[in-house]
Design a binder for these strands. Structure first.
Lengths: 158, 158
DNA sequence: AATAATTGTTAGCCAAGGCTAAACTATTTG
DNA sequence: CAAATAGTTTAGCCTTGGCTAACAATTATT
């Protein structure tokens, strides 16, 4: 069974990109992303509920469903979770409300979101794109980067 | 059953943040994020395999497991998926390789990744942080934004 | 007031992405 | 070369976050 099959290239025949980070660091990068994913959806719900309360005065499950493009059953299930987590209070056929903790989370999320959104616009990204990108990016931007984005935005305003 | 319970605030008592986008647009933002999540992991694997091949000459399941901080069983299962998707070729107890399609994906991913990483560094973010943020952000940056980031980085280099 | 429409919940299904434990294969070493 | 070690796979379990369908409650309409 000789081995003249597909074979790996020599270590760096095609140089490009950065070197591989040390294993532990690399692992931590992926771990951070995985952790972010766990809280991401929760935060999106809470943030949206906060926004609806702020702008509309109430937050109904149906609104959430249509704004998230998700079935009402999914929203209903999610609300149960948010309830268990102590983030919202809900009574059937009534608007949702945020608990103290929920409000806190909503506010933090909104701040992050706004910073990223304004930063992207300041960078020159079109509004629609900026909104989409911000929605995806907001959960993956560290406080350090966030601070830098904020400073950048401030110093690039008319 | 009168209703002097917790009640919504009037529409905009506490002004802040941006207005709510129209429903369809809002829905699209969330949908985009959900779609990104589906491909994200796949791309991460493919990208990592590509990096390992490039830098090490081979990509073994064990390396992936330790670099992703995930069990080997998880990697094994994932490899089966990548196989079914026609992205990698694998033979038991041998290094993985990327198919044409896999190579393409790896390259695209790496490019995106690099652009984001270099952009963050150009912005002034510390290397370790930049790496973590880039890992999370890369899948959520549109082509439009990516192009802007690239231009920015270029014009901010010594 | 009766009916229709909207809104919300529940049950039950599915796929993805983790995990551990056990079995098997390959490689290294005594 | 036999035994130990390292690498890989499989089986089976769990949680999340989607879905549809059926039903229940509320609100709106005629």
């Amino acid at each position: 069974m000789s081995d003249h099959e597909q074979r790996p290239l020599p270590p760096t025949s095609r140089l490009s990109g950065d070197a591989l980070p040390p294993v532990e660091q690399h692992a931590q990068q992926y771990e951070t992303v995985r952790n972010a994913h766990e809280t991401e959806l929760i935060e999106d719900y809470v943030e949206l509920i906060g926004d609806l309360l702020r702008h509309r005065g109430e937050a109904r499950a149906a609104d959430i469903a249509s704004r998230m493009a998700v079935s009402q059953a999914t929203v209903s299930k999610m609300i149960r979770r948010l309830n268990e987590l102590g983030l919202v209070t809900s009574r059937p056929y009534r608007s949702l409300f945020l608990t103290e903790e929920g409000q806190q989370m909503a506010e933090t999320s909104r701040e992050r979101h706004d910073i990223v959104l304004h930063f992207l616009r300041a960078l020159g990204v079109r509004d629609t794109t900026a909104r989409i990108d911000a929605e995806g990016m907001e959960h993956h931007v560290s406080d350090e980067t966030l601070a830098i984005m904020q400073r950048f935005t401030e110093s690039h305003q008319p």
